[in-house]
Amino acid sequence: MDKLIDGFSLGLFIWQLIFFLLILGGLAFFWKKILGAIETRESSIKDSLQAAEEAKAQVAQLKSSNEDALRQAKEERDAILKEARELKDKIVAEAKDKANEESDRIVANAREVIKNEKNAAVAELKNQVAALSIEIAEKIVKQELSSDDKQKALADTLVDDMNLN
């Protein structure tokens, strides 16, 4: 121990203290710069990694959104097609209905006309028949009514006929 205390050199101690404090001051700036550079680099690496991660997520999101759009478009197309088909069916049906109606109406009209014509024809026929009948009757009457008996018998049959009618 004595040797140790003996070996302690005050001069060396003082010089070491001075030099070391000087170098501490001298290097402080460089340490700051080196540590700062290391830190900046580390944080920039961290940031780039994070940015890459984010970009990856974004791409994934974009992809999924693209898929969504595609699916939506498909759905829309299907819907449009379906609607078109429905429309077509509806139009065809409508047209059919209309045609049916028209034809029905035409037929009805025709029937009416025919009926009317028939009625008219019947009426005319009746008239003619009546006129002819009258004519015939006249002639017959003129012929028949040459005698009284015959006139009377005729009247009777006529009356019977009328009743039968």
Binding site: F8, S9, L10, G11, L12, F13, Q16, L17, F20
Partner: peptide
């Protein structure tokens, strides 16, 4: 090897 130097560092 000298106590002065190591002593100075330890003192700091």
């Amino acid at each position: 090897n000298s106590l002065a130097v190591t002593g100075c560092l330890a003192l700091l």
